[in-house]
Design a protein around this nucleic acid. Structure first.
Lengths: 337, 337
DNA sequence: TTTCCAATTGGAAACGTTTTATATAGCGTG
DNA sequence: CACGCTATATAAAACGTTTCCAATTGGAAA
């Protein structure tokens, strides 16, 4: 039986009640006599009725769908986040419309408007940088927006993050604690606030606190990829004053760094120590296993979605700017204390 | 100006035309005088009108949304596939609703019905195995379904895959060609047809064609993960008659295999040769770099979505069962010829 | 019985489009 | 100048729900 095109009217006729009653049964409204409810339920089963969510969305102005804007779902980092989002969404009976922005402003804006057109109930946004034009669109948004792993640069959007500055500080400090007078920092584009402001300033602060000089040379920019980490480290190795301790902005870059070091005939952690960032699955897929800053991606996604559901249900939200804890997972790419 | 809640009526009034005319302008219908079109367009811009896709979906019975069912988006393999799907979807003005099934039958069925309830125009399904119950649901589907990287076991659903049997044959044959009389095969669950039937039979056929005996011991089952590859190889290494050539069912397992070998003090490719499967980004993130069967995940996703759009537009489809080419990418985990 | 209130149920409007059938305007033609 | 078209524009009916309000029903109380 094609459960398609059987409407609430058909069920009403079959059950001998009005459509309003069927609607009540379907929505679990308590104002229905048990016997009636059963009669309707039977008719629903018999006909294979499946409520039309589009019609429902039009009438109720709720679609139980949220939009998710992500730079690139094929990036393990965002894939994990997305999984966290989706799991919690499912838990609360929402579905997600997923779109890739490539961190491109125009795509972000276009996607955002498409999602609004589809009448999503809310949006979760991830992106390296909050472009002003985008924020202007956000300000007009008829639905709530939550940022995930994205800093809200001065705008007061709800957001879920870790303390990137402190995390970078911790990683750098650990390296310094191992006796290094010089620490290399290989990170992503500085335009992105997380790298340019947070991680960078954490790195500098650790240097300062230890009374070590900051050397411009010791900071190299990559683009998050393995190849860029490899290349950055190769370049660094050519120098006479190459730092023997490296803090890499992502695990993937850290892998590249380790391989560059090994390719040059050196050992990690004996000759060089390396710390990564994010604790993706990659961290244990290399020898030596990578010591890395744990950024709980899945949790960030899950908490962001939970936060959104709270806002949608007008539940009490104590703190709109959630900062999740981070820590350093010690493995074999640094020496034991 | 809150572009919210301005309807087609408002635009019509503002432009001094009827709503039907506005609808035509919005939908690019040619039966509108240029001057009228301009007038309407101006009104749209002035009011910041954004068509309500839900209302549109109800009236037109098309939502320009497709459902995507994936076992786990946080798995790099499916994330790549999803990216291929989404890119092509965007190209054709579709959005995707993404759901994770964990390859669980009940979740698959539930998700499928939810998607139908949301009136998606079509569905792309990925999953290790097509459970009978699911297929029964598929058969009643009012919208087209396309399988991606999923074998349609006897049912005639459109599908996009590579020739897994031949790919496994090629990989095994190459190893045999390097003089091995014994080849280990570490793969995923045999219930999943791709492993149990296709890859396994390709492996056996290569053995047979080379006149080599099949040894049950040489086949070890894992669950696709790094850890399972590592463990499987460790177990194999304990044997006296451990094969010196390994074909792993996924790259991630291959990395585990290589590390198990290296941890035991052996060298790849000198002592052991290893071939992976999929050519995920992981393949180049290990030393030695992994030789692997190239399964073009992104392309499979892209082609599957393109196929779906063709079906939705009632375009001519020459072949519903697409088999994309595969090849072996030679890197350093096998010896040079 | 009657009366009255609470519990159920029904009717109809509303949601914002698309779409079909119909009307109107403009214009070349005979 | 009337006629018949064609090109445009309008009106109104779907689309399948939710939801507000009114109507009915069933009992308990009087």
């Amino acid at each position: 039986m094609n459960s398609n095109n059987v409407t609430i009217y058909d069920v009403a006729r079959e059950a001998g009640v009005s459509m309003a009653t069927v609607s009540r049964v379907v929505n679990g409204n308590p104002n229905v006599k048990p016997t009636t409810r059963k009669k309707v339920q039977d008719a629903i089963d018999r006909l294979g009725y499946r409520p039309n969510a589009v019609a429902r969305g039009l009438a109720s102005k709720k679609t139980t769908t949220v939009g998710v804007i992500v730079p690139d779902i094929s990036n393990i980092f965002f894939a994990d986040l997305a999984r966290g989002i989706e799991d919690v969404a499912t838990m609360y009976k929402y579905n997600i419309i997923l779109g890739n922005s490539d961190s491109n402003r125009d795509k972000e804006i276009h996607l955002f408007n498409t999602l609004l057109g589809k009448q999503v109930d809310g949006i979760i946004f991830m992106g390296g940088r909050l472009h002003e034009d985008l924020v202007n669109e956000f300000k007009k948004s008829p639905v709530p927006i939550v940022l995930a792993a994205t800093l809200n640069q001065g705008y007061d959007l709800p957001a879920v993050n870790i303390d990137y500055e402190q995390a970078a500080y911790d990683a750098t400090e650990m390296l310094i604690g191992h006796g290094h007078k010089q620490v290399g920092f290989i990170t992503g584009p500085l335009e992105q606030q997380i790298n340019g402001e947070k991680k960078f300033s954490g790195y500098r602060r650790a240097l300062d606190d230890a009374g070590l000089p900051f050397r411009e040379n010791d900071v190299v920019l990559g683009n998050y990829t393995y190849a860029s980490g490899l290349e950055a480290m190769q370049k660094m190795l050519e120098r006479d004053d190459c730092p023997k301790a490296i803090f890499a902005g992502t695990d993937e870059m850290a892998l590249g760094v380790i391989h560059a070091i090994q390719d040059a005939g050196f050992s990690v952690p004996n000759d060089f120590e390396v710390v990564g960032h994010d604790n993706t699955r990659l961290a244990t897929m290399i020898r030596p296993k990578l010591t890395t800053v744990v950024q709980p991606m899945y949790d960030i996604g899950a908490v962001a979605m939970r936060l959104l559901t709270k806002i949608l249900n007008a539940e009490e939200v104590e703190e709109k700017n959630v900062v999740l804890p981070h820590r350093i997972e010690r493995r074999d790419s640094v020496r034991q204390d």
